[in-house]
Structure formats: C-alpha cells, structure tokens
C-alpha cells in the first residue's frame, strides 16, 4: 500500500510539472524556441504573487489571477521587444538570448528578495487531506493542482482547435510563411503564444509556491523538469506532456522512497532512458 500511496503522490506531482511543461511545449510548437528562462519566469510569477499577498493581504489563490495577467503582458512584451529580434538573428541567437534573460531574472530576483526561501500561505487547504486508508492519504491541494493542470490542458486544447487565434497558432506551427499569407501577423502571434505560456507558467509558479518553498535560484530546475516532461511525453503532444509530467513525478517520488534524496536523480535517469530507447517520446505526434 505504501507503493500505491507513492504512485498517487507522484501522479499528483506530475500535474504540477505538466503545468510547466505545457507552456514550454506551446512556445516550442508555435515558434520553435526553447525558452531557457521558462523556469525563472515561473519563479518570477511566484514572487509576484508574494508581493500581492503581502501588500493586499489576500489568499495567494486570488493573487493568481493578477500574476497570470501580469505575466501574460510581460510575456507579450518580452517576445515582441527582444525574442522576436533574436529569432530573426537565428535559432542559436534565440536560445542564447533566452539564456541571457534567465540570468538577468535570477539575479534581479536575488537582488530584490535575497536568497532566502519564501513560501505562499494558502491557509487550511494546504494541510487538508482525504484519508483513504492508513497508508494512502491524498492531500487536497495536490489533488486540486492536478485537476487544475488537467483543466488548463483541456482549455488549451479547446482553444487550439476551436478558436480563430488557436487555429492561427497551429497554422503558424505548421508553416510560418504560409500562415503569413493568410494574413496572420507572426510577430503578434509569437507575442500571444509567449503571453499564454507565461500565464500558464504563472499558475504553476504560484501552485508550487504554495506547495513548497521557493528561492530565486529555483528556476533552472523547474525548466529541467518541464523539459523532461515534454521529452518523455513526446514533442508536439499536448496530453503527452501530462503523461510525461506524471511519469517524471512518479519516478521522483519512487526514487525518493527507495533512497532518500535520490528522487531527482532517478527522474533524470528515467528521462535519459526514454531518450535512449524511445527518443520520440511516449506520445509523439504522428504527423510530421
């Protein structure tokens, strides 16, 4: 039963990773950009929520809406003000520009908030749980996180398949120049994709901030988890990222169970195993 509990905890953790992964995958899908500042943006969102909670004295879950909006606007601005130009310069330049931004964000946060760990206090919900048996206990908050992740992915899927802007995203992902010929302004579209990705990342950032603590240096590891979830799930597959996140979450929890402190390493090793034996990921998109 201990194993069952571990797997459940891993699945719940996977929901969190999927929230990070979906944004990374979206940006890559639409504009072929791997945003190395992705994790740092999620930490930035958590600090944003922290500031709002501190100044308005509200539950962090309310601050989430504000954080999403601000991160969305920020995403649009940085895409149009910097990343679009970097992408014009070349794919390598684009990666390096995001790397520069990652370092800037990390150090600005360090300057503004010190290296001390902070946490978001969401009150009673954090400790509430459902006891299924003596050994299987499901926390309400992790469960909510997973449900939110599923809802976000579902929303994203509906957005991509049913709306005009969503179809423009997919058309651009397929063939950017042809999309231009349909009257789609790719620079604006890239801005919107980054805005959407950072709004999603804000959800992840605030949720992880409630779940555990965070510090300015937490970003890189989140980028790595998001990335591993994407690769495990398979490039270009939306639901694959959820499965990838869950596989990673379960691997980490089980790894920690076998030997305390080995969770992250086991997660990495599972990722490498997938890379070695199924490099297209578990759910690679058929069409290409």
């Amino acid at each position: 039963m201990v194993w069952v509990n571990d797997i459940i905890q891993g699945v719940l953790l996977g929901g969190l990773y999927a929230l990070f992964a979906a944004g990374l995958a979206l940006v890559f899908g639409v504009m072929r950009l791997v945003n190395l500042a992705h994790g740092d943006f999620s930490v930035m969102a958590a600090y944003l929520a922290l500031v709002i909670v501190g100044s308005l004295n509200v539950n962090p879950l309310y601050s989430l809406v504000f954080a999403m909006i601000v991160m969305g606007i920020f995403g649009y601005a940085i895409q149009r003000g910097l990343f679009n130009f970097a992408m014009d310069a070349g794919p390598m330049q684009a990666i390096l520009a995001t790397f520069g931004v990652a370092i800037i964000v990390q150090n600005l946060l360090l300057e503004g908030f010190t290296a001390n760990s902070k946490g978001l206090d969401a009150g009673r919900i954090e400790n509430a749980f459902i006891r299924i048996s003596n050994q299987v206990v499901i926390g309400w908050f992790p469960l909510i996180t997973l449900l939110v992740a599923v809802a976000v992915l579902l929303g994203l899927q509906i957005f991509l398949s049913r709306t005009r802007l969503g179809r423009a995203f997919r058309a651009t992902a397929d063939n950017q120049r042809a999309a231009q010929l349909m009257g789609i302004d790719n620079r604006h579209l890239y801005g919107m994709a980054m805005a959407l990705a950072l709004a999603m990342v804000a959800i992840g950032g605030v949720f992880i901030g409630i779940r555990t603590t965070f510090s300015p240096s937490a970003g890189p590891l989140r980028l790595i988890f998001a990335y591993e979830a994407v690769i495990i799930g398979g490039l270009g597959s939306l639901w694959g990222t959820l499965v990838g996140g869950i596989v990673l979450g379960v691997a980490q929890v089980l790894g920690d169970h076998i030997q305390q402190g080995w969770g992250i390493l086991v997660g990495h090793l599972v990722f490498l195993a997938i890379l070695a034996f199924r490099p297209q990921g578990l759910f690679a998109r058929q069409a290409q």
Binding site: R167, R170, N175, A178, L181, M182, G183
Partner: peptide, 26 residues
C-alpha cells in the same frame, strides 16, 4: 491580395475545414 503559393503550402496537421477557416483569418 491573396497568394496561392507554388507548392501549395497547405497546413499539414490541420483538417481541410480548418485550413479553409485559417484562410479566412482576416
């Protein structure tokens, strides 16, 4: 001004219907 390119450049992962809808993006 609408340009139908040499080589067609349809959007491969979109359905025919979606391709047409994207055509009407403006």
């Amino acid at each position: 001004i609408s340009y139908v390119p040499e080589g067609r450049w349809v959007f491969p992962s979109l359905t025919v219907h979606e391709n047409l809808l994207v055509g009407g993006h403006t």
